[in-house]
Design a protein around this nucleic acid. Structure first.
Lengths: 238, 238
DNA sequence: CGATCAATTGACTTAGCTCAAAGCATGTGG
DNA sequence: CCACATGCTTTGAGCTAAGTCAATTGATCG
């Protein structure tokens, strides 16, 4: 788990190498991949990629980011893209442009990433079927998670979605699966709402409801204390 | 496009072979795949697989089916799984079991399919990186489509979702991208509603609204006439 | 210490859900 | 062939969760 902040390009690439290593039968493939990977460090609100010319696979080395859908580009300046999901250190994110609107990664905290052109990545990975397979498995997982999230958004109440969101964040941010836990949310109410298909106000109201129910506490800006993850899971209908 | 009904196992397997052929550099890999593929013919409401023991990749040779989420199995007999999406002839469907609830394919019409154990499929596919890559691309496409659908469900009105659904079906069922078009929907209002996160009643009301607006007509059971696909696209906010 | 921006709270509106009652097909048995 | 039962679809009449609009509070920062 390379979840701490890195200080240099070399250190990021090293942690990428460690992350894919289990799947790699061949050392030279790893070297080739590392040689085409481009390092980026972004400050909050900065976006990758600036121009959406092709598909990318991105290894997020540190920090937190949101994946944002870019509607058919110049719909109007008003329409901000919607949030597809959040990503954290050690995630591999697929940034696709595809038909009628792709996506881009926007930094929530200071982040470091290693970016690959999807095409180049796959050209090299083809030499190592085990790696290709592992990327495929990861993307099937991602598909499964997105399907689940879709159902939730379609069939759950605001309260269930918020509870589910918190359970999810606890697991992804600090690895907590049960018991009490305190997490620092890197995103604002607005991003939370958008990702769940709710408004800022509703998110806020649900937070206060949960606080009144004693399930959470909000000791400070962006900090949430979960008194009991299992109770929240239950609240989320899991 | 192998969208007509097949009459035999051999004919289905042949059409699977034709479907993956473009990605295959190696003929023997195709033969191996065909040899492990299991043929099934299902009547409406029958399910695949009966027991959810492992992940499957399924080639749908003919007919229409719905992909249904199986919640943490025995939640209660009341809770019917929600609909993840619809599939038609020539689709490749990934049926995952994963953590806390997988999915299964339920026939809407009479269907024929060729099923592979995901593991066995990938073991063989590893010998042919081009095939593996093509499966990966397909699953990334699927991910992209699911992401888009998730946003829609989260941020669109009932009317927009129904309009979008009809546009989608026109494209997938009869390949129509614009102009007028008549489609035979293989699923009932209940399935439509569930897949969009709406109730039967709301779906029905939206259909009559669209009918009043002159955008569609419903000449008979399960038949919908779209007077102008582009107008519907606009209605759907595309 | 104001200025700014995010979060909260309140009052009101509304889209879509729930409950309930008809319609309308399709199929079955007499 | 008709009578009737069954299962979809449509339509109607409230109800409620969540959205909208608007004002207040609270943090963060130059």
């Amino acid at each position: 788990m390379a979840s701490h902040a890195h200080t240099s390009e070399a250190s990021c690439i090293e942690s990428f190498r460690a992350s894919v290593a289990p799947a790699l039968g061949d050392r030279t493939v790893a070297d080739q991949l590392c040689s085409i990977g481009e390092y980026f460090a972004l400050s909050p609100d900065e976006q990758f990629p600036a121009s959406i010319d092709k598909d990318h696979l991105v290894y997020l080395a540190s920090g937190a980011a949101k994946l944002v859908s870019l509607e058919h580009p110049p719909l109007d300046a008003q329409t901000r893209g919607h949030i597809l999901g959040f990503h954290f250190a050690d995630d591999i994110v697929s940034i696709l442009r595809k038909p009628g609107g792709g996506s881009s990664l926007t930094a929530l905290t200071h982040i470091e990433l290693v970016a690959f052109s999807a095409e180049e990545f796959l050209d090299i990975a083809q030499a190592d079927p085990a790696l290709l397979r592992s990327v495929l498995i990861k993307s099937l997982d991602s598909l499964q998670r997105t399907r689940t999230r879709m159902i939730r958004i379609g069939h759950q109440t605001a309260r269930q979605r918020i509870a589910g969101f918190l359970v999810n964040m606890a697991e992804r941010i600090c690895g907590c699966m049960s018991g009490p836990c305190e997490i620092a949310l890197p995103m604002g109410r607005s991003d939370i709402g958008d990702s769940l298909g709710l408004t800022i106000e509703t998110v806020s109201r649900q937070f206060t409801e949960l606080r009144k129910s004693g399930l959470i506490s909000t000791p400070g800006r962006g900090i949430v204390g979960l008194s009991d993850i299992d109770a929240l899971k239950c609240e989320a209908g899991l």
